[in-house]
């Protein structure tokens, strides 16, 4: 009987000591070697020293946390048109650009955003058209380069007035 109690106490002691040791384990001390492994995941999130998410590689990417109503909300801008790829966020956590494809039209995008709007868009459409669009914040000054099988064009909007260039060139 005594030996059974002793054994039970030993086990209990061992468990308690193991949990005690476990509490000291430091996540950073473990080095995982994945050099010859292939990782298959839905997303990877890179955070900075404050825990602010700075890069997300994923499918699908989350909605921006800045909308027409300002900071402190979700934009709901992509709606059901989910996008997947890589998104960059600034030191305040605001979406500032991405390299993505969308599920609906099948476009591929590369975008660079200011803190108020999208300033640069590189777009490749699935049927073989492409565009480069440069915007000012108020969209009154815009440069558009576009190509497709029927046409190629350069358009400039300056002070909110369209100034077509090289149209109808033979």
């Amino acid at each position: 009987m005594k030996s059974k109690i002793f054994y039970a106490l030993s086990i209990g002691n061992l468990l308690a000591f193991s949990f005690y040791l476990f509490s000291f384990t430091n996540k950073t001390t473990t080095t995982l070697d994945f050099q010859d492994k292939i990782i298959k995941v839905r997303g990877v999130v890179i955070v900075d020293s404050l825990g602010i998410e700075r890069v997300i590689m994923g499918s699908h990417l989350p909605e921006p946390n800045f909308g027409k109503n300002g900071y402190g909300s979700r934009a709901n801008s992509r709606g059901k048109n989910g996008v997947s790829g890589v998104m960059l966020y600034d030191a305040e956590g605001q979406e500032r650009g991405g390299y993505v494809t969308d599920d609906n039209f099948g476009n591929a995008f590369l975008t660079l955003d200011s803190k108020t709007s999208m300033q640069l868009l590189l777009l490749s459409e699935p049927q073989g058209a492409a565009s480069v669009i440069l915007n000012s914040a108020d969209r009154k000054n815009v440069v558009t380069l576009s190509t497709n099988d029927e046409d190629a064009g350069i358009k400039v909007k300056k002070n909110d007035k369209n100034i077509p260039l090289y149209e109808n060139e033979k």
């Binding site: 997300i56 990417l61 989350p62 946390n65 900071y71 966020y89 956590g93 605001q94």
Partner: peptide, 10 residues
């Protein structure tokens, strides 16, 4: 995935 900035005051 949320793209949360946990330090920001909303």
């Amino acid at each position: 995935m949320t793209n949360i900035n946990p330090v920001s005051y909303t």
